[in-house]
């Protein structure tokens, strides 16, 4: 049974059709990278999976069940899906440790001591154990994004969504975040990653999804996709991003 399915999903912002009849399934343990030019709808696709965006048509299921409407049911579903944002969105008024323990304690009812112990282990894993008691603004962008990944992982999610996780980072910090993501992928986590990092997509993804103009144009294993894109749009896109 696939972990996530999208069937005929469409969505418009006003007259602008940002998602057009999207069909996609993601199996448990799979790493899917979504690539494509800006404005292709790939971020929106990612945000629809945990219903941060609603859809106009079609159907999305998670773990065999359609996404619930706004309310407690949806909150329970979201607790099983970790999300990492482009702009980190760490809670600005809480320490890094508090950021990570908030979800487990308030949503899953884990006791503070237990939550903190686990949070420190996660911080160790993403390499910022010494920042536990700092506020987010005291960390570099790369450190903040790693903390945000730790926050998502603390919920022990079945699926991780990455919405352009390195796009807001200075170049020298991109690698440290990608390293964390790579080790996560290697550990068997199911991941949907919207990214511009072709190197990451090539090395870490099980499948690459190429989107343009709200349509899903190609789904292929990375070595096939990067070697011989089936569509002209994909070939154009790759020609532009890979010449640098």
């Amino acid at each position: 049974m696939p972990l996530v399915t999208l069937e005929g999903v469409s969505k418009s912002f006003g007259k602008n059709r940002v998602l057009n009849d999207i069909n996609l399934t993601v199996e448990a343990g799979e790493v899917v990278c979504v690539i494509g030019p800006s404005g292709s709808g790939k971020s929106t696709l990612c945000r629809c999976v945990n219903r941060l965006e609603t859809i106009d048509e079609g159907r999305i299921t998670f773990d065999g069940r359609p996404l619930p409407a706004e309310g407690r049911e949806l909150a329970r579903m979201r607790a099983q899906v970790g999300m990492v944002f482009q702009s980190f969105n760490l809670f600005a008024h809480r320490t890094i440790l508090d950021n990570i323990t908030l979800g487990p304690r308030r949503v899953n009812g884990v006791r503070r001591a237990e939550a903190e112990e686990k949070a420190r282990a996660l911080l160790e894993r993403v390499g910022i154990a010494d920042k536990a008691d700092r506020l987010p603004r005291q960390l570099s962008g790369g450190q903040q994004q790693r903390a945000a990944i730790a926050r998502a992982l603390a919920m022990e999610p079945k699926l991780m969504l990455f919405d352009e996780p390195t796009s807001a980072l200075d170049p020298e910090m991109i690698q440290e975040v990608l390293d964390v993501m790579r080790s996560l992928a290697a550990s068997g986590m199911t991941m949907i990653v919207v990214t511009h990092e072709m190197g990451f997509a090539r090395s870490a993804a099980d499948r690459v999804v190429f989107m343009a103009d709200g349509r899903l144009l190609e789904v292929a294993p990375p070595k096939n996709f990067f070697a011989a894109p089936a569509s002209e749009r994909a070939a154009d896109f790759l020609a532009k991003v890979l010449t640098h």
């Binding site: 909150a75 099983q80 970790g82 702009s87 308030r106 945000a148």
Partner: peptide
């Protein structure tokens, strides 16, 4: 983004 991150956590 603060509220979005909170909702994404399941709050």
């Amino acid at each position: 983004g603060q509220a979005e991150a909170a909702r994404a956590l399941g709050l």
